[in-house]
Each structure stands twice: as C-alpha cells, then as structure tokens.
Computed example of a mutant assay.
Amino acid sequence: MDAPGTQGGLFDGGALQLADAQLTYLPDWLDGATADDWLHRLVEETPWQQPEVVLFGRQLPVPRLVAWYGDPEARYRYSGMTHQPLPWTPLLGEIRQRLVNTLGQPLNGALLNYYRDGQDSMGWHSDDERELGAEPLVASLSLGGVRRFDLRRKGTTRIEHSLQLEHGSLLVMSGQTQHHWQHQVAKTRKPCAPRLNLTFRLIRTPL
C-alpha cells in the first residue's frame, strides 16, 4: 500500500507542491544506459566504508555503506563524525559537472550511500548541518533498485508524502526544506535490487 501523498498529483513540471519546501523531482534525468554504466562503475570503484555510531549507548554499524568525496576544504560533520573528503574521481567529476550545468549552482561535496538490500536504510533526519548554510542545497541522484523516500514535518511522526526514487532520477532539495521537513529511506521486506544514492551538496562554511 502506498504511503500518504505519493507523487501522483503532487508535482507540476517537476516541482513538488509542498508547504515550506522547495523540491524538484526529475524521474528521467539520466538515460537508462548511462545510469546502468554509472551504477556498475561506482559500485566497483568506490572504497566503501561502514562506520559505527553510538545509539542508545551501543556502538552499531550504520545500515549501509558510505563514502564522502569533495574539494579539499569540503569537510563534513554528521552523525557525530567529521568526514575528510576523498578526491574526486574522473567519473564523479563528470557527474558533478552535469549537475552543476543542470542546477546552475556550484557543488563541492558528494555523499555516496550504497543500500545493498531492503534491510539497508537511512533513518529520519534533516540535512541541516551548520556547514550547509541557511538554505541547504542537496541534489540526490538515485541509481539501481527503486526505494521509497518518505517525508514528514519536523515534530510529527506521520509520513505526509512518499516518492518512489527511480533508477536515474534526480531529487533536488533546497530553500527552507531542511528546516521544516525530515526524510528517511525505511527498511523493507519487499525484494529490491541494490541501490546507490549520490547526494551532492554545497559546503558553504568549511569546518
């Protein structure tokens, strides 16, 4: 069953009609052949890590594999850890340039999350770290298996909107979105192919 507010009727020309938010969803940003190629190469080339976080007094591995790339000054702190950027690879540099051309905005860092199966997930959060500035810009490219992306208002528990993030799709979050909304990629028991998510960001205030 779909969660409340799935994408049917929510979008007008790619823009999500959501109060106190600026979101744009482009389901076919990449052609299928390019999306397939980038997925295969990135999964193989990336030096994946699985850092641990302290949750309720226990040290647990995050339920996905991660890597942080960026310009030398683009250090990024989240989940209690400061991440030093890996240098851009030729492929990630190419992807970044395509996104910059699409958005007309600079981007200096990219967080890669690899969801190996339905039990890999991302809990509720907002990308509102200080170094992302007053109006964080996050461009989220999805490759591989389709996963559901949920949104809820801060301070509430009800899922208000959900999107099915397709292979080769681009979701752009900007403006006041991160100040008013949280998002997650929940675990699922449904069979799903591995998914790679690249979230390109603009670090405005380096650590």
Rank of each mutant, 00 (worst) to 15 (best):
T34I: 10
G109I: 12
Y25F: 15
D31C: 06
L111G: 03
R75S: 13
S169N: 10
H40T: 12
A19M: 14
L18K: 07
K190Y: 11
T199K: 08
A21C: 10
G13N: 12
L143R: 07
Y76E: 03
S79G: 01
R116N: 15
R58M: 06
G80C: 10
F149S: 02
L18M: 15
L65I: 12
A15M: 08
W88F: 11
G32W: 00
G145F: 01
P191Q: 09
S121I: 03
S79D: 00
P85G: 08
L16N: 03
Q97D: 00
H167D: 14
G109T: 11
A186Y: 09
T156Y: 00
N108W: 15
F56K: 13
W124M: 07
A74K: 07
L92W: 03
H40P: 00
H180E: 12
P4T: 10
R201T: 07
Q17C: 06
V43H: 09
A33N: 10
Q17F: 00
R158H: 11
S174T: 09
L163Y: 02
P206L: 10
D37A: 15
G155I: 08
W48H: 12
E73H: 14
P191F: 05
P106G: 13
A186P: 11
E160A: 13
S142I: 01
R147F: 09
Y69N: 12
F149W: 02
E45P: 02
R96K: 15
W29A: 11
L170N: 06
P4S: 09
A19T: 15
W88Q: 04
L91N: 06
D12P: 05
A33W: 06
L143I: 07
V62D: 04
Y78T: 05
P87Y: 02
N197A: 01
